[in-house]
Design a protein around this nucleic acid. Structure first.
Length: 501
RNA sequence: GGGUCGUUAGCUCAGUCCGGCAGAGCAGGGGCCUUUUAAGCCCAGGGCCACAGGUUCGAAUCCUGUACGACCCA
């Protein structure tokens, strides 16, 4: 094991503990109270003027102040911090010296004693015994903190190197309580989404992550291989085709929350694996889904944050329904200055985009170019907005509009300048679906590496009949970004993908 | 993929323009200190200056390349 000089010193303290008869990694813990329970127990005793209890707390040492024959320390557990008041006369000379010589910041310890208030009024354990629970060898970058009279907390030299925080998330979580809180918020968000769906008749299901044919989204997959079957498999890029098969099987409302994998670029809003919620509801359509999504997300905000007005990157987002609805054509017209319906071929649209100063790849299809224009407009879509009516060629699983077969019944929602989700009136006509797959095949042959492959089994399912339905997919990480006011998806992923060093 | 910036002690950072002994605070070590809370005071330590190469009498510093990251753009 590679040890630096600080770690070497702590290894010597391990021996010092053992020599003194104290096991540095004992098996049992005697905790009677969390630090929060201890404070409450003291306050309860105080209010009834009874004797405060003697308790045992356990946690990490996060501050130590030795004053000679008396010392103060703070012990932190998940519920908070509690001061330890250590006196040589109470602990005995041997144990007190052991504390001074062999206990460090970051160590997990257990302290027993009566609860008291110190002269400055802070509730503390006056330790009569002290035990090591787990010796820390590497010094944790625990910041010093200062709270002024107004209650403002200042932290000095907090562990803040972005790369190291992600590579050593355990250290980040251990020393940055706000990071722990952020992941609690993320967890509560997923719990609230699930609770809403469960109470609205949706059945939670699990579908394959390893798929012989990928589909349901425009993305390049990760490929893997099953050795015994001698078969290539793909990590799913969406759950869509498997969930919709379940509607053929007579489930009317299904959802799945899980991981999708897309072999694409990494950015502040993209990670190669990310958490997706997909839900499908029989006997509704795009417009029903708009109302469902408004309810789902505004209720989730209310449940998690207690409000539907949320601060995000300097904006005040208002999730109160109903949300603005704009057609894709109108939003691009307004935001990018191009009415794409005036340029119905890829060549014409490409020329116009270049004339207006936008990049337009030579091999991009007309639909892909429209999608590029939408990306130009996206950062300006701050308040919740449904953008609807997408070109059919970039939406191979959505049903066409009755009055305009070049467009489909599809929306994407944008909040805080990000795409948050995507929904269709799902295509359930097997012949039309087959035509769409064939068109995707031609796009693939023409060089579109995000085109979706033919899925014969999905067509077979459609031939049995799939009820009319609406479906919606939500980027859960991005919702967590909104709810925690973080600019980067990496801040809301416990272990974001990083290059190997 | 492109541009800009960054990488120095366990942590947070100076030092880089303008080349000349490797610095500070915190943390750690040795002392003093029986109610502190960024405790205080005294003393002594701690470095592959990301990596590789080049220029130079001399490189943390200038040049080239590489790795990793941050931000912006695509």
């Amino acid at each position: 094991m590679d040890l630096n000089n600080l770690e070497q010193q702590r290894v010597e303290k391990l021996e010092r503990l053992r020599t003194a008869g104290m096991e540095p990694y004992p098996r049992r813990v005697q905790r009677t109270h969390t630090t929060q329970e201890a404070r409450r127990a003291y306050e309860a005793a105080e209010s009834t003027e009874s004797t405060p209890p003697t308790i045992t707390v356990a946690g990490r040492l996060v501050s130590i102040r030795v004053m000679g024959r008396v010392a103060f320390a703070h012990l932190e557990d998940e519920s908070g911090k509690l001061q330890l008041f250590l006196r040589r006369n109470e602990l005995g000379e041997d144990l007190y010296t052991l504390f001074k010589k062999a206990f460090d910041l970051g160590d997990f310890v257990e302290a027993t004693g009566p609860l008291i208030r110190t002269r400055t009024g802070e509730i503390s354990v006056q330790a009569t015994s002290l035990r090591m629970l787990a010796k820390a060898l590497t010094p944790l970058p625990i910041p010093k903190e200062y709270t002024d009279e107004a209650g403002n907390l200042t932290r000095y030299s907090a562990f803040s190197d972005t790369e190291e925080r992600y590579r050593q998330r355990y250290a980040d979580l251990a020393v940055n309580p706000e990071v722990r809180e952020l992941f609690r918020t993320r967890s509560r968000t997923i719990t609230a989404l699930r609770a809403w769906l469960d109470t609205h008749g949706y059945l939670e299901v699990e579908t394959p992550i390893l798929q012989p044919i990928y589909g349901g989204a425009a993305a390049r997959p990760f490929t893997t291989h099953h050795n015994q079957l001698k078969q290539d498999l793909y990590l799913r890029i969406s759950f869509e085709l498997y969930l919709k098969r379940l509607l053929v099987g007579m489930f009317e409302r299904v959802y799945e929350i899980g991981r999708d994998f897309r072999n694409e670029g990494i950015s502040y809003k993209h990670n190669p694996e990310f958490t997706q919620l997909e839900m499908y509801c029989a006997y509704t359509d795009l417009y029903g889904m708009m109302e469902t999504v408004e309810q789902l997300l505004s209720s989730t905000a209310q449940a998690v944050l207690g409000t539907q007005h949320i601060p995000y990157q300097g904006h005040q987002l208002d999730l109160t329904p109903p949300w603005r609805r704009l057609s894709l054509r109108d939003v691009i017209c307004e935001g990018a200055g191009i009415d794409y319906s005036d340029f119905p071929t890829a060549d014409a649209l490409r020329a116009e985009m270049r004339r207006c100063g936008y990049d337009a790849a030579e091999k991009a299809t007309w639909g892909r170019l429209v999608d590029n224009l939408l990306s130009e407009v996206e950062p300006g879509l701050i308040q919740p907005t449904f953008i609807h009516d997408y070109p059919v060629e970039i939406s191979p699983l959505a049903k066409q509009k009755a009055d305009d077969p070049t467009h489909v019944e599809r929306f994407e929602i944008f909040v805080g300048g990000m795409e948050l989700g995507n929904a269709f009136t799902e295509l359930n006509d097997p012949f039309e679906q087959e035509r769409r797959f064939l068109q995707q095949g031609r796009a693939s042959a023409a060089g579109d590496d995000e085109a979706q492959p033919m899925d014969e089994d999905y067509l077979r399912a459609l031939k049995y009949g799939m009820p009319p339905n609406g479906g919606f997919g939500l980027g859960v990480d991005r919702l967590a970004m909104l709810f925690t006011d973080r600019h980067s998806i990496r801040e809301v992923l416990l272990y974001p993908h990083l290059r190997a060093k």
